[in-house]
């Protein structure tokens, strides 16, 4: 009985910490994104609120909170209010299955604490399934707004996510074949032992799987060059064009968290998770993990301010005519290599 209570308390603490971290993550991320944008465009980025504009996200948040919450008259009110939450909840729920480290022992008590909420044996499937749910929020948001732009954005997003979900799942299949497990902790463990054990360097298929996963991931989280659902040029802001204030902020929050999720997954699937690439630098594993994820997030922002947006038909071509055939070939090659 006592043991169970302790377990429950530990899980509650973990959920609380993870929730808080996830809720506050977009605050520094928006700042970083605008700084990266600024410097890539030879500007300074936000500079006036706080030293180097560090308090800009706080100012933005206050602004968002004070904004009027507009619901269009002809909108479907229930769906309209539900949609931001429907996008946000799956983005958070994914993190139930995501490990950020193996385990550490609490000093003095000698109790092992695992750095994940649950080590599901089907974590990969769970993540693909749950993250796919967030598309409902986007479609509902677009539909309920009763606006042409929003509907177009929502529909594009549906088509895009469904197409790239296939390629992404194939990439996950590749990883599962390489690591012989569906559990994320096992996948990381199978890559331990330095740089050359990482799935990324499992030649020749590792890099290909990685690129498929990365491109599909970009499309999945609607980042440039695949941000067609919110294409400013032709759709104003796409599915969230009618949203304002906090509801809009929820969409943004979900988007940033999705970006973090994809980065985390890329690190776990291909870059050895919390594994130390050299085996000699005595850094705590969690720092390796955070460092790799941060590098990925930077890469996402870097790409955003480098590439233009693809046309819609190009997007579909890349998904169906390139990524999926390549993944099929890759499955075959990986299978032959693993015999």
């Amino acid at each position: 009985m006592f043991e169970t209570t302790v377990e429950v308390i530990i899980i509650c603490i973990k959920v609380g910490v993870a929730g808080m971290v996830l809720f506050s993550l977009p605050i520094p991320l928006t700042w970083v994104e605008r700084k990266v944008a600024g410097h890539i465009q030879v500007r300074l980025g936000p500079f006036r609120v706080g030293p180097h504009g560090i308090l800009q996200p706080v100012a933005d948040m206050v602004k968002m909170l004070l904004k009027e919450d507009v619901i269009p008259t002809k909108a479907d009110k229930w769906l309209f209010m539900l949609a931001p939450i429907m996008t946000m909840v799956p983005a958070f729920a994914v993190f139930v299955a995501i490990p950020v480290g193996d385990k550490f022992t609490l000093p003095f008590i000698g109790k092992d604490i695992t750095l994940y909420m649950s080590d599901m044996n089907v974590a990969v499937v769970y993540i693909l399934a749950v993250s796919g749910l967030s598309i409902y929020g986007i479609i509902f948001g677009g539909w309920a707004s009763n606006s042409k732009y929003a509907v177009m954005g929502g529909l594009r997003s549906a088509a895009q996510m469904i197409s790239y979900e296939v390629a992404m799942s194939f990439a996950a299949v590749g990883v599962v074949m390489l690591s012989n497990s569906l559990s994320l902790v096992e996948i990381v463990k199978s890559q331990s032992g330095g740089l050359f054990h990482w799935n990324f360097l499992y030649l020749p298929v590792g890099p290909v799987w990685f690129m498929i996963f990365f491109i599909a991931g970009l499309a999945e989280v609607n980042r440039i060059p695949f941000d067609l659902p919110e294409d400013e040029g032709s759709l104003a802001a796409g599915y969230h064009v009618e949203y304002s204030g906090m509801r809009f902020a929820f969409f943004m929050l979900a988007e940033y968290i999705a970006m973090v999720t994809i980065s985390v997954l890329a690190v776990i699937f291909f870059l050895g998770g919390w594994d130390d690439p050299t085996g000699v630098i005595p850094l705590p594993p969690i720092l390796w993990f955070v460092g790799k994820v941060a590098a990925f997030i930077y890469l996402f922002m870097w790409i955003r301010f480098t590439l233009p947006r693809y046309r819609y038909d190009q997007l579909m071509t890349i998904g169906w005519k390139i990524l999926i055939p390549v993944s099929l070939v890759c499955v075959l090659v990986t299978g032959l290599m693993r015999i």
Partner: peptide, 24 residues
């Protein structure tokens, strides 16, 4: 090998590391 893509990324990286021209 994403050659053009990497070239483009290098250009923006150069700008990212260079000093801005903003007059403060």
């Amino acid at each position: 090998f994403f050659v053009d893509f990497i070239k483009g990324l290098m250009v923006t990286l150069g700008y990212n590391l260079s000093k801005g021209v903003t007059l403060r």
